[in-house]
Design a binder for these strands. Structure first.
Lengths: 144, 144
DNA sequence: ACCTTGTTTTGGATGACTCAAAACAGCGCT
DNA sequence: AGCGCTGTTTTGAGTCATCCAAAACAAGGT
């Protein structure tokens, strides 16, 4: 029967997309790994959807992003990452050593959480913050 | 004689790097275009340093970055950009429509200009902010 | 002027991602 | 339950930014 989570079904269908095994598996993979690259997702999807392709994963991810179901982030120097948390203006903290990523809620509540000092006439729609540092494990290792 | 700017010479030599025509030209290109991709730099360098290669531009840019002379930024979905402003914790505002970029000084003065609400145990070294929006030209066009 | 060592050139390789056409499968309809 | 329209997946190739490595070359101290 290969039933996946019904929440995935609802989310996918609710976005006006057809529900397929492939998409369900991609959605579930993102639930299991909240900051996954396309390769990460593929690795999780392959065992349950044999014969699937990396391209299908990209298709599904891009469709989800277009539908507003998934958010794509791209820390400098890394492959794109996908996450299900969406539309809540949260940010990210990235470990410079091992690449670990955690969510950081916006310190100031509602979006946009910051205003630039000088907009140069730009209309600012969003402020994206990336904190760079060391995760606990790498910090401990560096101290030794 | 092909003399380039003496400020370039001083900066390059001051970083412990040898002064070459190629590097001088790359430095000058960054002066002329404060947010240039490797291709942009190459386009500006070729006319004055015939026979140079894109790889040489990459070499020079990477050497500059390693030496702390140049900063590399990478707005999501775009090629890396290089700038001479360094070590002053400024941020960027990027036009979603045409890709125009401007510097934005840190609203809160000294680095790091923000602290996350929850660090998840990470040691935060830097906060990088990217403002996304519409430049004046694209905003005017969108309004019409 | 010379020699050491850093730099440039050349050519190839990689990773992340996209494009496009043909095969396939949801799901609304009857 | 079956049909068919239309969206989805597969396959295979292609692109772009960037890097790697070996050989030719040149900056600058002696």
């Amino acid at each position: 029967m290969l039933r996946g989570s019904t929440t995935a079904d609802a989310a996918i269908r609710g976005s006006g997309l057809r529900v397929t095994d492939s998409r369900r598996a991609v959605y579930d993979a993102l639930c299991a790994n909240p900051h996954a690259s396309a390769d990460d997702v593929y690795a999780r999807v392959v065992p349950t959807v044999p014969g699937t392709s990396l391209q299908s994963v990209y298709n599904a991810l891009n469709d989800f992003v277009d539908a507003g179901l998934v958010r794509r982030i791209e820390p400098a120097g890394r492959a794109g990452l996908f996450e299900l948390r969406v539309a809540d203006n949260h940010h990210h903290i990235v470990c410079r050593s091992c690449g670990a990523i955690e969510d950081v809620d916006c310190a100031h509540g509602a979006a946009p959480c910051l205003q630039p000092s000088d907009t140069h006439g730009f209309i600012v729609e969003e402020a994206e913050v990336t904190y760079w540092g060391l995760c606990p494990a790498c910090a401990a290792e560096a101290a030794a």
